[in-house]
């Protein structure tokens, strides 16, 4: 058998060299983000059961709260709950809270864990040597997670509406999508911070769990923000999902919301998005530098 070794053509080498000499760092490489997101989605599609499992599992997590509420307050409502929340059905109140919270959960567990998977697959170091801005890789991971998270949240909402017999205003769809888009954008910054933690700590399962449980405790999912102690309420509003849950709940249950309040929510979410993006990018850059200096990038 004759082995043929193909020599790289002079033209190809020249074009590669030209690329390297002409290469100018860019702030954002959209095609890299798209490629990374597509790659992640292709892997996700290989495991379709995951979408169903992650859509149904949250119901098993929040059902105990609904059952507890039924046991101590009777079916559906209580006077005290209506007085402090302004809503008269805690099942309807909780389901929409969980729907929005799934995006936060996804940003905590998703973006950072993408890098952990790359590390397990042995592709993290090659990925970080690619001549593309880090933001493209981070956004690619974030886009694919958002698509998967949205599918899971919709599956959960449909199942929960069917199981608990709750309904929401159809007119809420457009404003909800708008609020979710800005909220998800703010959550990307949050996710970048967690991704930085994963680069540094490698397997920060405990830390991630701590962040997830603390944000869950502060978010108005099962109870309104007013149920939290006054000093903690301010911290709750720093989490982007708090404003997201309050606004989406108002629109989805009541079918309407005053325009100034809606605009105020969008403004507050936009402001949080700027803050979180700034913090997220800074902390990720610092984590990357810290990891590279110690030669820890591909380590476990």
């Amino acid at each position: 058998m004759t082995e043929t070794i193909q020599e790289p053509s002079t033209k190809s080498v020249e074009s590669d060299m030209a690329y390297l000499t002409d290469f100018k760092p860019r702030i954002m490489d959209w095609s890299a983000a798209r490629v990374f997101a597509t790659k992640n989605l292709k892997i996700a599609i290989r495991y379709p059961a995951n979408f169903l499992v992650w859509g149904v599992l949250p119901i098993l997590w929040f059902a105990p709260f609904i059952l507890m509420a039924t046991a101590i307050a009777g079916p559906s409502t209580s006077t005290h709950f209506t007085n402090i929340s302004g809503f008269d059905d805690f099942v309807q109140f909780s389901v929409i809270g969980w729907f929005v919270f799934m995006y936060l959960d996804n940003s905590i567990w998703g973006i950072g864990n993408n890098f952990r998977w790359e590390q397990f697959s042995g592709t993290l170091e090659p990925l970080f040597t690619a001549p593309v801005p880090r933001i493209s890789i981070l956004l690619g991971a974030a886009f694919s997670d958002s698509i998967q998270g949205t599918l899971q949240a919709i599956i959960m909402l449909i199942f929960a509406m069917f199981l608990f017999g709750v309904e929401y205003a159809i007119t809420a769809i457009f404003p909800t999508v708008l609020i979710l888009l800005i909220m998800v954008f703010a959550l990307y910054g949050f996710g970048f911070m967690v991704a930085g933690l994963i680069l540094v700590f490698k397997d920060p399962s405990v830390l991630t769990q701590l962040i997830a449980e603390s944000t869950y405790m502060l978010s108005p999912i099962q109870y309104p923000v007013q149920a939290l102690p006054k000093s903690v309420q301010a911290i709750a509003y720093v989490i982007p999902t708090t404003i997201g849950i309050i606004t989406v709940r108002e629109i989805a249950i009541n079918g309407t919301m005053s325009l100034p309040a809606f605009v105020q929510s969008i403004g507050a979410l936009g402001f949080l998005a700027l803050i979180f993006w700034g913090l997220g990018m800074l902390s990720f850059k610092w984590a990357e530098k810290w990891t590279k200096e110690r030669g820890h990038m591909g380590g476990f």
């Binding site: 709260f65 507890m68 509420a69 209580s78 405790m217 099962q222 309104p224």
Partner: peptide, 21 residues
Amino acid sequence: IWFIPYLIAGTALTGSSESIH
């Protein structure tokens, strides 16, 4: 961390530590 959400939810529902239901 696991117990506190139940505590807050229960207080929001009943307003006290007693429940007739």
